[in-house]
Design a protein around this nucleic acid. Sequence first.
DNA 1: TCTATCCATAACCTCCCGGTTATGGATTTT
DNA 2: AAAATCCATAACCGGGAGGTTATGGATAGA
Lengths: 107, 107
Amino acid sequence: MTPTPDLLFRTLADPTRRAIFERLCREGEQTVGALTARSGVSQPAVSKHLGALKQAGLVRDRHEGRQTHYSAQPGALNPLIDWTGQMAGFWQKRLDALDDLLKRMDQ
Amino acid sequence: MTPTPDLLFRTLADPTRRAIFERLCREGEQTVGALTARSGVSQPAVSKHLGALKQAGLVRDRHEGRQTHYSAQPGALNPLIDWTGQMAGFWQKRLDALDDLLKRMDQ
DNA sequence: TCTATCCATAACCTCCCGGTTATGGATTTT
DNA sequence: AAAATCCATAACCGGGAGGTTATGGATAGA
């Protein structure tokens, strides 16, 4: 079984935090300062968001002198993909059953 | 462009609410009473969650006498799927660029 | 008709979360 | 050595979200 996507959903629910993650996905590794510059919130806020993202396994950090570089951790989205796939699967399954039923009633 | 998955993430972030949605996906249409029975929270709480799910387009309701039947609305997850796909795509793109660069340096 | 059931809404409470400012340790620059 | 920069943590605050109980409208059953 794939790990529960609970933490993932909670972490990505906040727009500011998700925006940070998106930027890391689009543009690759960034320092805290660079991320803060266009985030619209204070540097401590960004640091907190990065901490949350890290705890959810969505980002990695790399220390270099006095600055910290963050980068997106791609595979971390897999549980999300699996979950949506499952939900779609359940739906499809019930659709098939209905289809089958109708086919039997038809003949 | 696909609609922003913001509302989707926020709506699915709550475990109780997501559990209700999962049950509707697995087992199909359910009345509020049936959902309340195994939800662990009060009936008004369930009604509120269903309201949120409905507003996010994740469920449909069907009134029949004094009871209301809810069912999952499958296509609603598409923006989520698109979003995860985009993120994975960005990552892949940068990987390709890196690969290309290395190849050039090599020769 | 009278009662019981189903569900939605209102009113309220609590707690968590995202924001802020303040601070300090580590490192770079002058 | 002194000053400045980068970032993380602490402390605090306000608002929102999820929970509850209370209530009422609509429908089904007696």
